[in-house]
């Protein structure tokens, strides 16, 4: 669907060149919701803007629907762009036009007959839940409603792909939820592939199937969201995960642990989907002379899967602890031994 190969983007300025992208490779499959996460300045904005050529890549290839975007003529590029919707952080609506006109204009651009426009716009406003606001002006709408108008406008020309450039970053948490739900809905109903960039792990967790972490113009990690959450490889990724799932022990708990005399181990347990339903801690406590003690716990929803994370202290003799860890692993619980000294 979208295939980015060896992409470079260098900005020239008076103070010298800035390399925003340094050889990015990325593949987004049809129907997927793919998230790119990075801190500001990491190059994620340049990356998404290279997909529809709002930025011309310095080097490399961008293929969308088997079209090499970097080689299209101006006319062909405009045709290709009509099938790639885009929504933005600041909505970018026409301030002097009503909600209806803002959506209709997208259809006018592709010379849709007047009679059809009316019906189509009403239908689109229905999809985004704004049929009662069609005669309002953007200044009379909330941020979430403005983004809904922008989504309706983007959908107008039967797009295959939707690019989301920090689409929820200007919204409050509740509105963010609602907009993400809408995007998920659109992805399922219309089979629209979504490529989004964000700096919020929450967005990735809520709707994405795959995630790429970008840092300093390079993709440093790429996997399914679930794998990334359970087995993050880089420190940056770990930091992003930490932003929505606290799994560090607090200083006071650590202090107490250090004073303990008994033989113990601190374990981090990760439960995915089915394994979350089994009472594994009860099982090991019952079968072995072990005393599990929960120090920290979290359960989060990753798209449609549950991910549970516990940090426990396991007290008992060395042999039993080894046995206990084995039982945990047998029950598909990802078990890591943590060191706190």
């Amino acid at each position: 669907m979208i295939e980015i190969t060896n992409l470079y983007k260098t900005y020239q300025s008076n103070e010298g060149n800035v390399e925003a992208l340094k050889g990015v490779n990325l593949k987004v499959e049809k129907g997927e919701i793919f998230g790119v996460i990075g801190f500001s300045g990491a190059g994620k904005s340049s990356l998404i803007r290279c997909v529809n050529m709002l930025e011309k890549p310095t080097e490399g290839s961008v293929r969308v629907n088997d079209l090499e975007m970097t080689e299209l003529t101006k006319h062909k590029l405009r045709e290709a762009r009509k099938k790639i919707g885009m929504i933005f952080q600041h909505f970018n609506l026409l301030e002097t036009c009503t909600v209806f006109e803002n959506v209709a204009v997208a259809l006018e651009l592709s010379h849709t007959p007047k009679g059809i426009i009316n019906e189509k716009v009403n239908n689109l406003l229905n999809i985004v839940g704004l049929e009662d606001k069609k005669n309002n002006f953007p200044s009379q709408l909330s941020g979430g409603q403005k983004q809904r108008v922008a989504i309706a406008r983007a959908l107008a020309n039967n797009i295959d792909i939707l690019l989301c450039d920090e689409a929820t970053s200007a919204l409050d948490p509740q509105t963010t939820e609602a907009i993400l739900e809408l995007l998920l809905d659109i992805n399922r109903k219309f089979k629209i592939t979504i490529l989004l960039i964000t700096h919020e792990m929450h967005v990735i967790k809520k709707i994405c199937d795959k995630v790429a972490v970008i840092e300093d113009g390079v993709i440093i990690e790429e996997d399914t969201v679930l794998n990334t959450f359970t087995r993050p490889k880089t420190q940056t990724t770990k930091n992003f995960i930490k932003s929505i799932m606290e799994d560090e022990l607090s200083e006071s708990v650590l202090k107490e642990l250090r004073t303990k005399k008994e033989n113990n181990k601190i374990l981090r347990l990760t439960f995915i989907g089915g394994s979350a339903a089994q009472p594994v801690l009860a099982i090991i406590a019952k079968e072995l002379p072990l005393w599990p003690n929960i120090l920290c716990g979290n359960i989060i929803q990753i798209k449609n899967q549950t991910l549970g994370r516990l940090i426990i202290e396991l007290t008992g003799d060395c042999h039993s602890i080894e046995e206990g860890i084995k039982i945990l692993k047998d029950h598909n619980v990802i078990t890591e031994v943590l060191k706190y000294d």
């Binding site: 529809n52 709002l54 590029l77 405009r78 045709e79 290709a80 762009r81 009509k82 790639i84 919707g85 885009m86 933005f88 600041h90 970018n92 609506l93 026409l94 301030e95 002097t96 036009c97 204009v105 997208a106 006018e108 651009l109 592709s110 922008a150 406008r153 983007a154 020309n157 690019l163």
Partner: peptide, 24 residues
């Protein structure tokens, strides 16, 4: 940003002049 949004929608320069710049 508005101009960019219209470029992303595949608007031609003439459409941007008439439907964005002069209209707004």
């Amino acid at each position: 940003g508005i101009i960019e949004a219209f470029l992303a929608m595949g608007a031609s320069p003439w459409q941007i002049i008439t439907k964005v710049l002069l209209k707004e």
